[in-house]
Every structure is written in C-alpha cells, then in structure tokens.
Design a protein around this nucleic acid. Structure first.
Lengths: 246, 246
DNA sequence: CAGCGCAGTATCGTATCCAAGAATGAAGCG
DNA sequence: CGCTTCATTCTTGGATACGATACTGCGCTG
C-alpha cells in the first residue's frame, strides 16, 4: 500500500489497531492522545497521525475536539464488508487464473496439500481417541497449533492469489478492505472454527486451486466468491453469537 | 489559530489535491511542506497531515526524510483502477436494482431524459450549422456549458446508484477508489469528449437505467460493467495521447 | 428540589522548536 | 578531467508549548 511511508506512524497505527482487535481497547473506549503517547512512549504528534489513519480506515471516529472513540462494527457492517471483499477477491481469482505463474501455482498447491494432510491426520487422531482430544494436552496443543497455522496458511493463500492478479491497485484496495475491522472478526471467529468448518474451507480452497490450475477464470471467480460468502455467513453467525446485544 | 474547521486537514488535502489535478503541481513536483504552509497560510503541522492523507490515497509518495513528490499515474495504473472500479460499480448496480427506491429511480430517469434531450438538441444545432459550431461563440459556449453539466450529471448518476446499493461500505470504498488520481483523468478526458462518445455514454446509461427500472440485478450489473470498461478504454486512449512519453 | 449558569478542568488542534537524515556542492585524489 | 568523499545546508519528523473549546461539577435561583 504505502511502502515508503514514515514507519513510526504506521507502526503506531498497527499497534493501536492490534490493541483494539485484541480487546485491550474495547468498542466505545475513548482513546486519549496523551495516554496513548505515554503508553507508547512517544509524543502526541505521531499518535495523532496514527489515530487519523485509523479514522480513515473507519476503525475509530474522531469528533471535533473530543477523544477518538473505538467503533464497534455491527453485523451489518461485517456483512457489507464481506460483500465487497467477495467481489474483489473474486476478481482477483479471475485475473489470477490468467496471470499466476506455474511456480506460484506449485507453491500454493504444495502448501495447500500439506496443510490439508495435516488437518486430515489431526482429525484422524481426534476421532480415533475422542477423550484424548480434550484431555490430552499434546493433542489439544497441536490443535491450537493447527489453528494458528491455519490463519497463517489462509492468509498466504489469499494473498498469493491476490498478488498474482497482476493488478497492483486491486492488491492495495483489497488490503485496505481487509485491514479494517474485518480482521478482528476473522481472528476472533478463527478460534471458534470447528473441524467441519475447516474442512469446508479446505474443500473450497481445493476448488479454487483446481480452477486456477485449469486456468479457468470464470470458475476460479465463482469458486472464490462462493468461498468468501460462505466464510461471511460463518463469521456473521459467530459474530452474532459473540455480541448479541450490540 | 483557525480552530473553526474540524476538518482543516481534509480541506487542505482537497485543495492540494485540486492543485495537483489542475496541473499547478505537475507529476514529479517536490511538495515542500514549508512552501505549502506559506501558500495556504497555515503552519506545517496540518500540511504534514494533509500530505499524509494524500499519500494514503496514493496521490503522492513520501519517503523517509524526503519531500513528498506528486505521482504520475501510468496508463497501467489507470487501467488497473478502472478494472477495480468496474467491479465495484457493477456490484453497486446489481444491488441497486434490488434496493433503489421508486423516487430515486424517477429522479434518475428525469435527470437522464432531460440531459439526453439537451444533448440531442445541441447536436441538432451543431450539425445544422457546422461552421457555427467552431466559429459562433454562443454555440461553442453552450457546448462548454454542456460539457460542464455533463460532468455534474454523470457524477450524480453514478453516485445515486452507488448510494442506493444499500451498502455503506461499498459507497465508502468506491469513493476511495474514485477520489484517487482517477478524477484527474476523468476530468481531463471529459473535455476531450466528442459527441459520439457522449452519445455512447448516454445510451449506456439508458441501458443501466432500464435494467434498474426492470429490477434486473444481473442485467444492471452487466450494463454497468460494460459502461465502465468502455469509459476505461476511452480514458486510457486519451490519456495515452495526452502523455505519450510516460 | 430541580433546572440553569458559571467557573474550572481536561483535551484537542495548531504553532514553534530541535534533532536527525538526505541532497548538494566543493575539494581532494586517481 | 572525472570520481569519490566530506562538510554544509535544507527539509523533514518528533517533541513541546500555547490557545481554544467542550465536558464537569458546583452553586444559585425559581
């Protein structure tokens, strides 16, 4: 997006954003510049610009001479965001089918297969010893590990496809879209992902990947859109469970 | 000193942006904060934040400790941007077919018809007296006027459809996309629009409008995408003529 | 007892100041 | 005569100072 930007401000924005996502600053919190400045041990100036960026991203809202407050996304917000995201990622997949290089494709395939295999074996372990799945720390730990790895893998999958679209503006826009409060929900709902959901997602990724390998833009697009909208439903459902009052 | 405006920064960003678009600061210009501060009679602080916002929008690029420089979009940039825009506006049209209210639709229709009529009569005047078109100041003035009006009308057309998509996030994203250096090209190429191009556009608008009236999302979407991509080709062509070296 | 107004305080926005890093130009060297 | 290197200067980024404004709590009055 802005690779040559002054680093400090971006970093501060990211750190504040992370704190918002992790729940350190829950929605409605008044983010006072002075306190943030003390917390991060910098002066108010870069904090102020960081808040300005967060406001531009729609994560906080700044009134005239009032503290910035953390916005809480409604499920409608999430839904709207995913609708846009589905469209853009669909376009990315469509273009990618045209432009992705064979090495990229192979990398994607091997990473995907490896992960799918890992999930399969993990699932086999769980079903073969159901009690161990909850009791045995090593198995539950490996499930934790798989969850973390899953996030990483999923992000790389989408990023690779996006970047192979050969449209830098699309990459930028999609990053903007995804870096908003989207991530908070993605992260929080990822922990709640059950094995069925993971397998569904893997199957969808498989479809997308195959379409890319077959170099079929329309197919890739449809598969991707379906995938994102499916994720959208899941995320919105778990979001509604998480915050039924707002 | 001037605490009257809560968005002095936004205003400065807009004014600088305008100056860039109008050619006062051609691509490659080094925008020195001190000079800008003198020019707009404010201190460097708000200028800095305004530049920061312009950078976030991709209009200028700022390196560490270096002056911000005005970016010059390549025709590839334009093309990429229009590809994304086509997608998003297509989605907007699709959603709009579902959500647009009858009053909005009627307003759109009357504005469109009135303008189409104006263009038709103007064209009749021009073809009936070809020499007058270039010589007679009143006719050429009215053509100028029509051009200006055209921009206004076109913007309203797209904005109305976008806003009737019932997806606020889409509206925001599309605004971000469109407010970048997109506008510079749109504006500059609008003056070069010949009557054939205008009529083509009007016909495309007509198709979109009819699809909305028929409440056919798919049709509206396709018509809109075709329209934007058509505009894209025209804009890129006139851009290539305008700046053959970059 | 409640509503209004005023003063105090807290917080933001803008201006100014200082240090750090890059561009520029001159001087020395090959 | 050109290239490299160093010092000066210019510009930016961050810190701080100051003025303005919105919130808060208390007292006064109806």
């Amino acid at each position: 997006m802005t690779p040559d930007a002054p680093k400090l401000i971006e970093e501060l924005a990211d750190r504040i954003h992370s704190k918002i996502l992790s729940g350190d600053y829950p929605p409605g919190t008044r983010l006072k510049q002075e306190l943030l400045a003390q917390e991060f041990d910098v002066s108010r100036t870069p904090i102020r610009e960081a808040l300005s960026r967060l406001e531009a991203k729609g994560i906080v809202s700044q009134a005239q001479r009032r503290s910035a407050v953390v916005k809480s996304p409604s499920s409608r917000d999430i839904s709207e965001m995913y609708q846009v995201r589905a469209e853009l990622e669909g376009l990315a997949a469509q273009l990618s089918a045209r432009w992705i290089t064979d090495p990229q494709l192979e990398e994607l395939r091997s990473a995907h297969d490896a992960f799918a295999e890992a999930v399969r074996s993990l699932r086999a372990a769980r079903t073969s010893d159901v009690h161990a799945a909850t009791a045995n720390p090593s198995v539950s730990a490996s499930f934790e590990e798989a969850s973390r790895q899953w996030l990483e893998m999923n992000a790389r999958f989408h990023r690779t496809i996006c970047e192979s679209s050969n449209n830098r503006f699309l990459v930028r826009t999609l990053q903007d879209v995804t870096s908003g409060y989207a991530r908070s929900v993605m992260l929080s709902s990822a922990t709640g992902m059950n094995s069925y959901r993971i397998e569904t997602t893997i199957a969808q990724h498989e479809r997308i990947l195959r379409a890319l390998e077959e170099r079929e833009p329309g197919k890739a697009r449809r598969a991707m859109i379906e995938h994102i909208l499916g994720a959208s439903e899941f995320v919105i459902a778990s979001f509604a469970n998480l915050e039924p009052q707002s």
